[in-house]
Design a protein around this nucleic acid. Structure first.
Length: 340
DNA sequence: AACGAACTCAACCGCAGCCAG
DNA sequence: GCTGGCTGCGGTTGAGTTCGT
Protein backbone atom coordinates (compact mmCIF):
# COMPACT_ATOMS: atom_id res chain seq x y z
CA UNK A 1 0.00 0.00 0.00
CA UNK A 2 1.67 3.20 -1.14
CA UNK A 3 1.43 6.61 0.42
CA UNK A 4 -1.21 8.88 -0.98
CA UNK A 5 0.42 11.84 -2.71
CA UNK A 6 0.30 15.20 -0.94
CA UNK A 7 -1.55 16.64 -3.93
CA UNK A 8 -2.73 15.73 -7.42
CA UNK A 9 0.36 16.24 -9.51
CA UNK A 10 -1.57 16.93 -12.71
CA UNK A 11 -3.53 19.85 -11.35
CA UNK A 12 -0.78 21.70 -9.52
CA UNK A 13 1.57 24.27 -10.93
CA UNK A 14 5.28 23.79 -10.48
CA UNK A 15 8.40 25.83 -10.96
CA UNK A 16 9.11 29.47 -10.23
CA UNK A 17 6.60 31.43 -8.18
CA UNK A 18 5.10 34.58 -9.65
CA UNK A 19 4.68 37.79 -7.62
CA UNK A 20 0.91 37.26 -7.76
CA UNK A 21 1.24 33.84 -6.21
CA UNK A 22 3.55 35.22 -3.57
CA UNK A 23 1.02 37.89 -2.71
CA UNK A 24 -1.83 35.41 -2.45
CA UNK A 25 0.14 33.11 -0.20
CA UNK A 26 1.56 35.85 1.99
CA UNK A 27 -1.76 37.56 2.51
CA UNK A 28 -3.53 34.29 3.25
CA UNK A 29 -0.92 33.30 5.83
CA UNK A 30 -1.01 36.78 7.35
CA UNK A 31 -4.74 36.26 7.97
CA UNK A 32 -4.96 32.58 8.80
CA UNK A 33 -1.50 31.46 9.83
CA UNK A 34 0.32 28.35 8.66
CA UNK A 35 -1.88 25.63 10.04
CA UNK A 36 -2.49 22.69 7.70
CA UNK A 37 -0.38 23.26 4.62
CA UNK A 38 -2.53 20.90 2.61
CA UNK A 39 -5.48 23.25 2.84
CA UNK A 40 -3.58 26.49 2.38
CA UNK A 41 -3.20 26.43 -1.42
CA UNK A 42 -6.82 25.44 -1.85
CA UNK A 43 -8.10 28.17 0.44
CA UNK A 44 -5.67 30.77 -0.87
CA UNK A 45 -6.70 30.09 -4.46
CA UNK A 46 -3.33 28.73 -5.52
CA UNK A 47 -2.73 25.95 -8.01
CA UNK A 48 0.12 24.71 -5.88
CA UNK A 49 0.96 21.74 -3.74
CA UNK A 50 0.88 22.39 0.00
CA UNK A 51 4.45 21.33 0.25
CA UNK A 52 5.45 23.85 -2.37
CA UNK A 53 3.61 26.58 -0.43
CA UNK A 54 5.35 25.66 2.79
CA UNK A 55 8.72 25.76 1.06
CA UNK A 56 8.00 29.08 -0.56
CA UNK A 57 6.94 30.55 2.75
CA UNK A 58 9.74 29.18 4.88
CA UNK A 59 12.51 29.84 2.39
CA UNK A 60 11.46 33.10 0.84
CA UNK A 61 8.33 34.87 2.02
CA UNK A 62 8.72 34.77 5.78
CA UNK A 63 9.06 38.39 6.90
CA UNK A 64 11.93 37.67 9.30
CA UNK A 65 14.19 36.32 6.58
CA UNK A 66 17.49 37.92 5.79
CA UNK A 67 18.31 38.08 2.08
CA UNK A 68 21.71 38.70 0.63
CA UNK A 69 25.32 37.81 1.24
CA UNK A 70 26.45 35.83 4.22
CA UNK A 71 28.74 37.80 6.49
CA UNK A 72 32.12 36.44 7.50
CA UNK A 73 30.82 35.95 11.02
CA UNK A 74 27.97 33.86 9.69
CA UNK A 75 30.38 31.79 7.63
CA UNK A 76 32.51 31.17 10.68
CA UNK A 77 29.47 29.98 12.58
CA UNK A 78 28.48 27.64 9.76
CA UNK A 79 31.95 26.13 9.54
CA UNK A 80 32.22 25.70 13.27
CA UNK A 81 28.80 24.15 13.63
CA UNK A 82 29.26 21.95 10.60
CA UNK A 83 32.43 20.57 12.12
CA UNK A 84 30.38 19.53 15.12
CA UNK A 85 26.98 18.53 13.77
CA UNK A 86 27.68 17.80 10.10
CA UNK A 87 24.95 18.33 7.51
CA UNK A 88 22.27 19.19 10.04
CA UNK A 89 21.30 22.30 8.14
CA UNK A 90 18.22 23.13 10.13
CA UNK A 91 20.24 22.96 13.32
CA UNK A 92 22.90 25.25 11.90
CA UNK A 93 20.33 27.62 10.44
CA UNK A 94 18.66 27.87 13.83
CA UNK A 95 21.79 29.60 15.09
CA UNK A 96 21.69 32.15 12.27
CA UNK A 97 18.71 34.48 12.65
CA UNK A 98 17.00 35.14 9.35
CA UNK A 99 18.71 32.29 7.51
CA UNK A 100 16.99 29.12 6.37
CA UNK A 101 18.37 25.63 6.19
CA UNK A 102 18.17 25.90 2.41
CA UNK A 103 20.24 29.09 2.46
CA UNK A 104 22.85 27.53 4.68
CA UNK A 105 22.95 24.33 2.65
CA UNK A 106 23.32 26.22 -0.64
CA UNK A 107 25.99 28.49 0.75
CA UNK A 108 27.89 25.54 2.11
CA UNK A 109 27.70 23.58 -1.12
CA UNK A 110 28.58 26.45 -3.42
CA UNK A 111 31.07 28.48 -1.41
CA UNK A 112 32.29 27.15 1.90
CA UNK A 113 33.08 23.64 0.74
CA UNK A 114 35.32 24.99 -1.97
CA UNK A 115 36.99 27.42 0.37
CA UNK A 116 37.87 24.67 2.80
CA UNK A 117 39.05 22.38 0.02
CA UNK A 118 41.19 25.20 -1.31
CA UNK A 119 42.79 25.40 2.09
CA UNK A 120 43.59 21.71 2.00
CA UNK A 121 40.93 20.90 4.55
CA UNK A 122 38.45 18.15 3.94
CA UNK A 123 35.00 19.76 4.27
CA UNK A 124 33.51 16.50 5.43
CA UNK A 125 35.81 15.76 8.34
CA UNK A 126 37.34 19.23 8.78
CA UNK A 127 40.73 17.60 8.87
CA UNK A 128 43.57 18.41 6.48
CA UNK A 129 43.48 16.19 3.40
CA UNK A 130 47.06 15.25 4.15
CA UNK A 131 46.06 13.83 7.47
CA UNK A 132 43.40 11.69 5.88
CA UNK A 133 45.80 10.49 3.20
CA UNK A 134 48.30 9.62 5.88
CA UNK A 135 45.65 7.79 7.84
CA UNK A 136 44.70 5.77 4.80
CA UNK A 137 48.24 4.88 4.04
CA UNK A 138 49.57 4.24 7.49
CA UNK A 139 47.07 2.91 9.93
CA UNK A 140 45.40 0.01 8.21
CA UNK A 141 46.25 -3.30 6.71
CA UNK A 142 46.01 -3.39 2.89
CA UNK A 143 42.53 -4.91 2.64
CA UNK A 144 41.19 -2.24 4.98
CA UNK A 145 43.17 0.43 3.19
CA UNK A 146 41.48 -0.58 -0.01
CA UNK A 147 38.06 -0.04 1.48
CA UNK A 148 38.92 3.19 3.19
CA UNK A 149 40.67 4.52 0.13
CA UNK A 150 37.64 3.78 -1.96
CA UNK A 151 35.42 5.57 0.52
CA UNK A 152 37.81 8.52 0.74
CA UNK A 153 37.97 8.70 -3.00
CA UNK A 154 34.23 9.00 -3.07
CA UNK A 155 34.35 11.83 -0.57
CA UNK A 156 37.09 13.83 -2.24
CA UNK A 157 36.51 13.04 -5.86
CA UNK A 158 34.45 16.07 -6.64
CA UNK A 159 36.82 18.46 -4.93
CA UNK A 160 39.80 16.84 -6.56
CA UNK A 161 38.22 16.94 -9.96
CA UNK A 162 37.15 20.50 -9.47
CA UNK A 163 40.64 21.65 -8.62
CA UNK A 164 42.32 19.40 -11.13
CA UNK A 165 40.27 20.54 -14.03
CA UNK A 166 39.93 24.16 -13.02
CA UNK A 167 43.56 25.07 -12.80
CA UNK A 168 46.62 23.28 -13.98
CA UNK A 169 49.70 24.18 -12.00
CA UNK A 170 53.08 24.31 -13.68
CA UNK A 171 55.21 22.23 -11.44
CA UNK A 172 58.83 23.13 -11.03
CA UNK A 173 60.72 21.81 -8.05
CA UNK A 174 63.11 24.35 -6.55
CA UNK A 175 66.68 23.76 -7.55
CA UNK A 176 68.64 21.67 -5.14
CA UNK A 177 65.60 20.24 -3.55
CA UNK A 178 65.37 16.60 -2.93
CA UNK A 179 62.45 16.60 -5.31
CA UNK A 180 64.87 16.36 -8.16
CA UNK A 181 65.66 12.87 -7.05
CA UNK A 182 62.14 11.77 -7.22
CA UNK A 183 61.31 9.13 -9.75
CA UNK A 184 57.84 8.90 -11.07
CA UNK A 185 56.41 5.84 -12.64
CA UNK A 186 56.53 6.65 -16.37
CA UNK A 187 53.42 4.63 -16.92
CA UNK A 188 51.55 7.10 -14.79
CA UNK A 189 52.78 10.20 -16.53
CA UNK A 190 50.68 9.95 -19.63
CA UNK A 191 47.17 10.05 -18.41
CA UNK A 192 45.24 12.74 -20.21
CA UNK A 193 44.97 15.24 -17.39
CA UNK A 194 41.94 17.06 -18.71
CA UNK A 195 39.95 13.89 -18.96
CA UNK A 196 37.84 13.19 -15.90
CA UNK A 197 37.93 9.45 -16.39
CA UNK A 198 41.66 9.63 -16.75
CA UNK A 199 41.85 11.62 -13.55
CA UNK A 200 39.81 9.10 -11.69
CA UNK A 201 41.99 6.35 -13.08
CA UNK A 202 45.10 8.17 -11.93
CA UNK A 203 43.73 8.60 -8.45
CA UNK A 204 42.71 4.98 -8.28
CA UNK A 205 46.04 3.76 -9.58
CA UNK A 206 47.87 5.89 -7.08
CA UNK A 207 45.84 4.47 -4.27
CA UNK A 208 46.30 0.96 -5.58
CA UNK A 209 50.02 1.44 -5.76
CA UNK A 210 50.14 2.70 -2.23
CA UNK A 211 48.17 -0.28 -1.07
CA UNK A 212 50.51 -2.67 -2.83
CA UNK A 213 53.63 -1.14 -1.32
CA UNK A 214 55.35 -2.28 1.82
CA UNK A 215 54.27 -0.15 4.74
CA UNK A 216 57.85 0.54 5.81
CA UNK A 217 57.78 4.25 5.17
CA UNK A 218 54.31 5.45 5.71
CA UNK A 219 55.11 9.05 4.99
CA UNK A 220 56.59 8.25 1.61
CA UNK A 221 53.52 6.24 0.92
CA UNK A 222 51.14 9.09 1.52
CA UNK A 223 53.23 11.19 -0.79
CA UNK A 224 53.24 8.52 -3.44
CA UNK A 225 49.49 8.29 -3.34
CA UNK A 226 49.27 11.91 -4.33
CA UNK A 227 52.24 11.86 -6.60
CA UNK A 228 51.49 8.83 -8.64
CA UNK A 229 47.87 9.73 -8.86
CA UNK A 230 48.90 12.97 -10.46
CA UNK A 231 47.42 14.97 -7.64
CA UNK A 232 50.62 16.31 -6.25
CA UNK A 233 51.86 18.07 -9.31
CA UNK A 234 48.56 19.39 -10.51
CA UNK A 235 46.17 19.76 -7.70
CA UNK A 236 48.01 20.05 -4.45
CA UNK A 237 48.70 23.72 -4.85
CA UNK A 238 50.59 25.12 -1.97
CA UNK A 239 52.07 21.79 -1.18
CA UNK A 240 55.47 22.32 0.24
CA UNK A 241 56.71 18.86 0.56
CA UNK A 242 56.79 15.80 2.60
CA UNK A 243 59.15 13.27 3.89
CA UNK A 244 62.32 14.57 2.36
CA UNK A 245 60.71 15.81 -0.82
CA UNK A 246 60.29 19.49 -1.02
CA UNK A 247 58.14 21.35 -3.49
CA UNK A 248 56.71 24.78 -3.89
CA UNK A 249 53.71 25.23 -6.10
CA UNK A 250 51.55 28.26 -6.44
CA UNK A 251 49.36 28.67 -3.42
CA UNK A 252 45.70 28.43 -4.09
CA UNK A 253 44.44 29.34 -0.65
CA UNK A 254 42.24 32.34 -1.15
CA UNK A 255 41.12 35.07 1.15
CA UNK A 256 39.27 32.74 3.41
CA UNK A 257 41.28 31.04 6.04
CA UNK A 258 41.24 29.81 9.55
CA UNK A 259 43.12 32.71 10.93
CA UNK A 260 45.10 32.34 14.07
CA UNK A 261 46.13 35.27 16.18
CA UNK A 262 49.90 35.21 16.73
CA UNK A 263 50.26 32.47 14.26
CA UNK A 264 51.72 33.82 11.08
CA UNK A 265 48.52 34.81 9.33
CA UNK A 266 48.01 37.86 11.40
CA UNK A 267 45.35 40.19 10.20
CA UNK A 268 43.71 37.83 7.79
CA UNK A 269 40.35 36.24 8.25
CA UNK A 270 38.86 35.76 11.64
CA UNK A 271 39.45 33.65 14.64
CA UNK A 272 40.13 30.00 14.78
CA UNK A 273 38.32 28.05 17.38
CA UNK A 274 39.03 24.56 18.58
CA UNK A 275 35.42 23.79 17.85
CA UNK A 276 36.33 23.88 14.17
CA UNK A 277 37.92 20.52 14.71
CA UNK A 278 35.61 17.65 14.02
CA UNK A 279 33.88 16.12 16.95
CA UNK A 280 35.66 12.90 17.69
CA UNK A 281 38.72 13.95 15.77
CA UNK A 282 42.18 13.97 17.22
CA UNK A 283 41.87 17.61 18.08
CA UNK A 284 42.10 18.32 21.76
CA UNK A 285 42.86 21.99 21.49
CA UNK A 286 42.03 24.15 24.42
CA UNK A 287 41.45 27.90 24.48
CA UNK A 288 44.81 29.57 24.38
CA UNK A 289 46.21 26.81 22.26
CA UNK A 290 44.63 28.15 19.13
CA UNK A 291 46.34 26.37 16.32
CA UNK A 292 44.49 25.85 13.09
CA UNK A 293 43.53 22.33 12.21
CA UNK A 294 46.21 21.00 14.42
CA UNK A 295 46.29 17.30 14.88
CA UNK A 296 46.43 17.21 18.60
CA UNK A 297 47.52 14.00 20.14
CA UNK A 298 46.61 14.06 23.76
CA UNK A 299 49.64 13.34 25.85
CA UNK A 300 51.72 12.18 22.95
CA UNK A 301 54.50 14.68 23.50
CA UNK A 302 55.61 16.90 26.28
CA UNK A 303 55.91 20.61 25.62
CA UNK A 304 59.67 20.71 25.17
CA UNK A 305 59.63 17.89 22.76
CA UNK A 306 56.86 19.55 20.79
CA UNK A 307 58.78 22.80 20.55
CA UNK A 308 61.84 20.96 19.39
CA UNK A 309 59.93 19.19 16.67
CA UNK A 310 58.26 22.40 15.65
CA UNK A 311 61.62 24.14 15.37
CA UNK A 312 63.02 21.28 13.37
CA UNK A 313 60.10 21.49 11.06
CA UNK A 314 60.59 25.19 10.51
CA UNK A 315 64.26 24.70 9.73
CA UNK A 316 63.76 21.72 7.55
CA UNK A 317 61.38 22.96 4.87
CA UNK A 318 58.98 20.10 4.97
CA UNK A 319 60.92 17.03 5.84
CA UNK A 320 60.29 14.00 7.93
CA UNK A 321 61.08 14.76 11.54
CA UNK A 322 61.15 12.04 14.08
CA UNK A 323 57.68 10.64 14.29
CA UNK A 324 55.91 13.40 12.41
CA UNK A 325 55.49 14.32 8.82
CA UNK A 326 55.00 17.83 7.50
CA UNK A 327 52.72 17.73 4.53
CA UNK A 328 51.27 21.10 3.63
CA UNK A 329 52.32 24.65 3.05
CA UNK A 330 50.13 25.74 5.88
CA UNK A 331 51.24 26.85 9.30
CA UNK A 332 53.41 23.99 10.40
CA UNK A 333 51.45 23.04 13.47
CA UNK A 334 48.50 22.60 11.21
CA UNK A 335 50.31 20.16 9.06
CA UNK A 336 52.26 17.95 11.38
CA UNK A 337 51.05 14.45 11.08
CA UNK A 338 51.91 12.03 13.83
CA UNK A 339 53.09 8.85 12.21
CA UNK A 340 51.48 5.85 13.74
C1' DA B 1 29.84 39.53 -29.92
C1' DA B 2 28.93 34.77 -29.40
C1' DC B 3 29.20 30.64 -27.34
C1' DG B 4 30.00 27.17 -23.86
C1' DA B 5 31.24 26.30 -19.12
C1' DA B 6 30.64 27.20 -14.47
C1' DC B 7 28.06 28.88 -10.84
C1' DT B 8 24.00 30.07 -7.97
C1' DC B 9 19.93 29.29 -5.71
C1' DA B 10 14.93 28.38 -5.72
C1' DA B 11 12.32 24.51 -5.97
C1' DC B 12 11.42 19.64 -5.98
C1' DC B 13 11.68 14.81 -4.25
C1' DG B 14 11.47 11.30 -1.08
C1' DC B 15 12.32 9.66 3.40
C1' DA B 16 11.89 9.85 8.48
C1' DG B 17 9.82 11.30 12.63
C1' DC B 18 5.96 12.75 15.09
C1' DC B 19 1.33 12.56 16.54
C1' DA B 20 -3.61 11.81 16.67
C1' DG B 21 -7.08 8.46 16.23
C1' DG C 1 0.71 -0.99 19.52
C1' DC C 2 -0.66 0.11 14.81
C1' DT C 3 -1.89 3.05 11.02
C1' DG C 4 -2.32 7.06 8.30
C1' DG C 5 -1.52 11.85 7.62
C1' DC C 6 1.31 15.90 8.24
C1' DT C 7 5.54 18.25 8.73
C1' DG C 8 10.48 18.74 8.67
C1' DC C 9 14.71 17.64 6.76
C1' DG C 10 18.56 16.71 3.62
C1' DG C 11 19.84 15.58 -1.04
C1' DT C 12 19.25 16.71 -5.75
C1' DT C 13 17.83 19.16 -9.89
C1' DG C 14 17.54 22.55 -13.33
C1' DA C 15 16.59 27.33 -14.96
C1' DG C 16 18.67 31.57 -14.95
C1' DT C 17 22.87 34.19 -14.57
C1' DT C 18 27.70 35.14 -14.76
C1' DC C 19 32.23 34.23 -16.34
C1' DG C 20 35.86 32.91 -19.50
C1' DT C 21 37.56 32.17 -24.02
Amino acid sequence: MGRIPCCEKESVKRGQWTPEEDNKLASYIAQHGTKNWRLIPKNAGLQRCGKSCRLRWTNYLRPDLKHGEFSEAEEQIIVKLHSVVGNRWSLIAAQLPGRTDNDVKNHWNTKLKKKLSGMGIDPVTHKPFSHLMAEIATTLAPPQVAHLAEAALGCFKDEMLHLLTKKRVEFSPPSGSSAQHMVMDPALQHFPSEDKDGTIQRIKMGLSRAIMQEPNNSCDKSWDIMLSSGIADQQMDGFVGTCGRSYQAEAVVDEFRYDVPNYGNEGEGSGWSPSMCTAGSTCNAVPGDQLPGRLHEKGDKDEGEEDEIANDARKGDGMLFGSECVLWDLPDDLTRIPIV
